[in-house]
Structures are given as structure tokens and as C-alpha cells.
């Protein structure tokens, strides 16, 4: 009989490679946006509003994926939007990971007062509706890259803290930790040199998943018009415009949505693939 786990591992290969391929391509496109993008992403031309993509009658050469209602080139805006999406994924994901994992390690291994405070905070955080909380934070901090990143870090650190805390507690009870301490290693040293390396695969998987979440949060924030400045090219902002004109110009919605969809799917599949491969705990 076919074993379920065997089937999953069989699929993990192409899934990992396809996700990595798309993300790699996206990084190249984002870095090269100033040279690759055919038009200025901010240039408006009302005479060229809502042009269809190249294979449909009425398309204008040079505007491969059409234009939005202000005549801005959709392809160029997607490419420039990728820069913001990936910056947020990288910076917000890493910061969230550092803060959340550190707090989780402290709560799970040191226990005592630090565990009490951190766990209580996690409980309170879990009672906030996350989307509303992030919108609130960005509204308070004012739009801008810093606010988006701060909002993501402030909201999502609990994802890392919860999992890492549980994992550090399990590891902390194991014999090798006791022997390390017998051998004369201090509490902090044990935490950093014995526990951390064993929790690292879990953290890596969570980090990959968090990057996908960060991309979505940024899109949601720019969808409600709270991201960076209003006319800067963001996928969420393009989607918001596309949503309102979906019956007149579907391409304004479809192409940024496709980019967002593939990116989020890739981060998540990459995380799941890594989980199947390297992490006995989360599997």
C-alpha cells in the first residue's frame, strides 16, 4: 500500500525547486527593476488610460500588460512593487524571527518570571484581531516602510515565540542539556550553544513562512491605502485599484494578483518543503 508520507516526500522535490525558482526570478527582477521595467512606474498619461495587455486589440506597443486608469504601465509597476514586497519580506521576516525566537527561547528554557511575562503577553496578543491591529498600528505610526515593518514585527513575534518556547521546553528536558550543565556550561551558554542549534531547523521553516505572511500583510495594508505613499507602486495598491475597475479593466487586478499569489504560494511551499525535509519536529 502507498504510504502517505512516502507520497509527500516524493512531491517535496519539484515543489521546493519551483518555489525557489520563482522567488529567485523575482529577486532578480526586483533588483533589476530600474533597468528592466519598460516604463516609468509613476508616469501618468491620461490619453493612454486602461490600455489592454498586448494580445488584445487596442493595445499600445511597449505597454505589455496594459495600463491602469491613470495610464501607468502595469508591468513596470509590478516590477517596482516587487522591490517593496521583497524588502518587507526580508527585513520584517528577519526582525520578527530574531525577536520572537529570542523571547521564545527565554520563556521556554529559562522559565520562571520571564516565561510568566512572555506567555501572558502572548495570550493578550492572541486576543487581538491581527489584520485590524496591523491597520491600527500603521495608522498610528503613519504610512511608510518603517511603519509596515514595525507593525509586522509587533504583531507576528508571537508566532515564533509560541513554537520556539514549546520546542525549547522539550529540548531543555533532554539528557544532553543536563550533561552540558554538569560539564559546567552556564544557563545562557546552554541556551545559545545547546538548545538553539537544535531549534534552528524549526526557526528556519517559520522564517520562510513568515516572509510569505509579511508579503500578504504589506499587500493588505496598501490595499486599504495605508502602505507607503499613495502613488508608489505596490501590489496591494494596484489590487485595490483593480478591484474597483474590475468590470472595465480586469488586467489591472489580474497581473498584480498573480504576482502576489505566486509569491505567497512559493514562500509557503518552500517552508512546507523545508519542513518535510529538515524538521522532524514540525512534521
Amino acid at each position: 500500500m502507498l504510504d502517505g508520507r512516502g507520497a509527500i516526500q516524493h512531491r517535496a522535490g519539484p515543489r521546493l525547486w519551483l518555489s525557489a525558482l520563482w522567488l529567485g526570478l523575482l529577486v532578480v527582477l526586483a533588483l533589476g527593476a530600474p533597468w528592466i521595467a519598460p516604463k516609468d512606474p509613476l508616469a501618468q498619461d491620461l490619453m493612454l488610460g486602461r490600455l489592454p495587455p498586448f494580445w488584445i486589440d487596442g493595445a499600445e506597443p511597449g505597454y505589455w500588460l496594459g495600463t491602469d486608469s491613470l495610464g501607468r504601465d502595469v508591468l513596470s509597476r509590478i516590477l517596482w512593487g516587487a522591490r517593496l514586497a521583497l524588502t518587507v519580506a526580508l527585513v520584517a521576516g528577519t526582525l520578527t524571527c530574531l525577536i520572537g525566537a529570542t523571547l521564545g527561547l527565554m520563556a521556554g528554557f529559562l522559565r520562571g518570571a520571564s516565561d510568566l511575562v512572555i506567555s501572558r503577553l502572548v495570550d493578550i496578543w492572541m486576543a487581538f484581531p491581527p489584520v485590524l491591529f496591523s491597520i491600527l498600528l500603521v495608522a498610528v505610526l503613519g504610512p511608510g516602510l518603517f511603519s509596515i515593518i514595525a507593525a509586522i514585527v509587533l504583531i507576528d513575534w508571537t508566532r515564533f515565540a509560541r513554537v520556539v518556547r514549546a520546542e525549547a521546553m522539550t529540548q531543555g528536558a533532554m539528557d544532553y542539556v543536563a550533561s552540558a550543565q554538569v560539564a559546567g556550561r552556564g544557563r545562557i551558554g546552554t541556551m545559545a550553544l545547546e538548545i538553539l542549534p537544535n531549534v534552528l531547523p524549526t526557526i528556519g521553516v517559520l522564517l520562510t513562512l513568515e516572509m510569505g505572511i509579511a508579503v500578504i500583510v504589506e499587500a493588505i495594508l496598501s490595499f486599504v491605502n495605508l502602505s507607503i505613499s499613495t502613488d508608489a507602486p505596490t501590489w496591494g495598491g494596484m489590487i485595490a485599484e483593480g478591484r474597483t475597475s474590475v468590470h472595465q479593466a480586469w488586467w489591472v487586478l489580474v497581473f498584480p494578483l498573480l504576482a502576489l499569489f505566486l509569491t505567497v504560494l512559493s514562500f509557503s511551499q518552500l517552508g512546507e518543503g523545508l519542513k518535510d525535509r529538515f524538521d522532524p519536529v514540525l512534521r
Binding site: 512531491r11 478591484r243 487586478l253 489580474v254 509557503s268
Partner: peptide, 22 residues
């Protein structure tokens, strides 16, 4: 079914909403 499940799990509600609208 497993693949469909994996897809459904990886994509958040916001994106499903947009896909459904289209």
C-alpha cells in the same frame, strides 16, 4: 486531494477573496 488541501492552506483568505471575485 492532498495537493488541493496544500494549496488551500498556503493561500490566505484575502487572496482567495480576490480569486473568487475574478
Amino acid at each position: 486531494i492532498d495537493v488541493a488541501n496544500g494549496m488551500a492552506l498556503s493561500i490566505p483568505d484575502f487572496l482567495w477573496g480576490l480569486v473568487l471575485i475574478l
